[in-house]
Design a binder for these strands. Structure first.
Lengths: 314, 314
DNA sequence: AAAGAAATTGCACAATTGTGCAGCAATTGA
DNA sequence: TCAATTGCTGCACAATTGTGCAATTTCTTT
């Protein structure tokens, strides 16, 4: 069979299989060849592009980029939304995929850990998932921000719980204390100990990622001073994941601030099945890369621009 | 999940399945949904045209038309070549598909019945199939045309046998005799009887289709007179398949010429597994339709123009 | 708020498809 | 011409995929 004859034959088989919906067995019978041959001819047809499978992507679909990032960093999932420059809009666009994700990964009776951050706070307002009333929402970091402003850890956890139709726990300790001693005392208090203990039951967590630049929310809210950030910078820190300070490879950088912080431990966090990070913007590129490389998060929500930067920075 | 969100999700799954080649099981694990759901989402994606499967047809491909005819007349196969107006060219184009067909349907040791006709004669020169040396080629009609011209039944059979690297039998009787009595005598001769007997072993036959117009080869070669054709026409005959005269529905029309003809019987022919008819051109439309409707042939070789006429005449 | 209707889900099974392998045929090279 | 090599074939099995069904959930309607 010459090349053109062959192509025609392949397209005939491909038509019967893909367009007319016959089974390989039926095609084999009809053309008087073995079923095995049909299977192999179809293979050839696909390889030779006689058959092409096209996916009609909705506009602004980045599933390809998503899959590239998923593969590159061996993470479970990456969700990319169009970049608009406007933070609130970006968060709004993340709502749908986040709800979809929650539908899929929040198993009955499971515990959901919630960190802190303006993105987390922002996105939480769009959560809308039904049938998850037996989820327990647990803070995995002490309070940051003022109660009443709605950015406080407990508020975010409560907000999310409300939107899931479920319940939340509260943490009665600030995230950052004045000294190691005070932290130890607070952490030994049964109220706090209980919450910390709960973090072992978590199988899904949502964490915030911050850089340590002067514009970070942590500076703006007065949680840290510029001097402290400079100190962390000098140690090679590129940012934090739920106040776990990491370097560009996602390795936890030991530092003297750590001992004053109340939060889930790096080891514990790495054992959580699904860790969702929501972060985008040029400033956060390094900490995102670190978090991905170090395996601190395995589900990433970001925008197109950041995603492209991630891929280009390998 | 709203409509756009759903489409994005579908396209994500479709990408993983069709483009990245993951199994449904892997996708299910990755997205934390059941495998059954993946199967159903893929179904939906195809139905919603999120996934489109396109077959890159070689130019001048008529596989769609072929399949329409196959379905409409419940025949095994229809092969259509581009119409060029030039008979020789059309036959040449049929060579590839015919060889392909022979490769598929000629089983080891089987008998191949050969009729008569200028198309058959023409196409036989292009046959080229290897590995079929144990086929026996058998005439299924008496001699028509003069020995030596190459249009004679025996010559065509011999030619085909040579090209298959196999052997052929000869029939030592004309197709049309002067009277019923002579035919009976000839048919009772052991030489002829033996060949006729062989036709019971045939599982593939190639037959010619003729119309009964004044330009038909049968008139030109002097086998029939115009009066005889007028007579047949008056009976409702539209043409013949291997000298079986049929009406527009393919029903064998009894007539007084039949009893002078030496050929395979209509009943016998209908039992042959594969009966290949090669015919095209406006004049032959009616007889082709008859042959298809009456189940006298189940594999048709024709050209685009004729094929379109066939479909339009339903 | 309750009952009924409709849709969705996963299981278990059936159907379909893919593939390693042994055997056979074709081709090549001496 | 023969041997060696290469490629093709179908079988038998393994893997993958599709689907009826019962249970459950969700949505309607009263």
């Amino acid at each position: 069979m010459d090349s053109i004859e062959r192509k025609k034959f392949l397209s005939k088989i491909a038509r019967l299989y893909y367009l007319e919906g016959l089974t390989q067995q039926k095609i084999a019978g009809r053309l008087n060849i073995s079923r095995t041959k049909v299977s192999r001819y179809l293979d050839e047809a696909r390889k030779d592009k006689v058959v092409e499978i096209k996916i009609n992507l909705p506009k602004e679909d980045y599933s390809r980029l998503e899959y590239e990032i998923e593969k590159r960093f061996k993470i479970k999932e990456c969700i990319i939304v169009p970049a608009s420059g406007n933070k609130e809009e970006i968060l709004k666009m993340m709502a749908g995929p986040l709800n979809n994700l929650f539908e899929r990964i929040l198993a009955g009776g499971s515990y959901l850990g919630i960190g802190w951050g303006s993105s987390l706070k922002g996105i939480s307002d769009y959560i809308n998932v039904s049938g998850k009333s037996d989820i327990k929402v647990v803070p995995i970091i002490g309070g940051l921000g003022k109660i009443g402003t709605g950015v406080h850890t407990n508020s975010v956890a409560k907000n999310i719980a409300d939107r899931l139709g479920s319940i939340s726990y509260m943490i009665h300790s600030p995230a950052i204390l004045d000294s190691k001693e005070i932290r130890e005392i607070v952490e030994n208090d049964s109220n706090t100990r209980e919450i910390i203990k709960l973090s072992e039951k978590i199988d899904t967590a949502m964490v915030g990622l911050s850089d340590i630049g002067p514009d970070s929310t942590l500076i703006k809210t007065g949680c840290f001073s510029l001097e402290e950030f400079k100190y962390l910078d000098s140690l090679g820190v590129v940012g934090d994941v739920n106040l776990i300070f990491i370097d560009e490879n996602g390795k936890h950088v030991p530092n003297k601030i750590d001992e004053r912080i109340v939060r889930i431990s790096p080891d514990r966090l790495k054992k959580v099945k699904n860790v969702i990070g929501v972060a985008f913007g040029r400033r956060k590129l390094k900490v995102i890369l670190g978090a991905l490389r170090g395996g601190l998060i395995n589900i990433l929500f970001t925008d197109r621009e950041t995603a492209e930067n991630i891929i280009n920075s390998g």
